[in-house]
Amino acid sequence: MGHSGETPRLGAARLSPGTPEDAGSRWTTEAVVQCERLSKRFGSTLALDSVDLAVPAGQMLAVLGLSGSGKSTLLRSFNGLVTPSEGRVKVLGCEVTSANSEHLRTLRRQVGFIFQQFGLVGRICVLENVLAGALGRVKYPRFGVLSYPRRLRLEAIGHLERVGLADRAFQRADTLSGGQQQRVAIARALMQRPVLLLADEPVASLDPESSAAVMELMLRISREDNLTVIASLHQVELARGWADRLIGLRDGRVVADAKPDEMNEQRLSEIYRRVAEGKMDGPPAPANAFTTALAG
């Protein structure tokens, strides 16, 4: 990474041997993200149903699945934006399930999160949005670009240059196109100097051209910085193109886990079965007054 963090990082802890209670279990120490029997319940719906997963360092993992299959919940439980109902989650050596708010913040600092809707504050300028990525490293609330030290402002410009938007630094974030906004969001994640990048449908609200550009950028940066990436995606082809490993979620359960070339049609239909069924068994189109009139 080449940066020296101001705050103690958990990266070292992740390489330390596990606690004695982990000795007999399947918990390995190399994995960056690990979860065991992870379940999450929202009211009466079960968003995640006993998920077991281990993601080693440097892996690029794509999570496939229908809308509502639990992809977002899974990713959000990795940095504590969602608190699991049952099971354990360990990310970068931090037990997310039992961590206090201080530990959670320390964890979140090192985990970049890319949202489907970008999560930019539209009314403030691009640079201040990127600087928000440094909030975990600075004390006190900040308001306005000039409330951040110059050193951080320069760093933020550097990240913006990396995503190709340095000339837009002082433009309002909501004047950018969707693809540009997602690139700003990537710059904000870089500002966190992340070890792990979580991306929740990063290109779902973009047109095909900008999706390709954003995915390409995310990927290139991840390879260059040696980041571990977990991204949830709709598009199977896009996922096959770059991921080292694909998992499929259906109704909150892992129904497929394979390398890209092993992910065949049968496995895919396991993930997307509802769509196929829906196409076959859908009710016939209701006859409207016009067709009835014609028939009569």
Binding site: Q117, G119, E128, Y140, R142
Partner: peptide, 24 residues
């Protein structure tokens, strides 16, 4: 969305308010 995003960077509660809510 923006507030959640600011939260995901490891910001404290008051940082979330000043950066995510106040400008809006």
């Amino acid at each position: 969305g923006p507030t959640e995003a600011v939260k995901s960077t490891g910001a404290t509660r008051w940082q979330q308010v000043t950066t995510g809510v106040v400008p809006q």
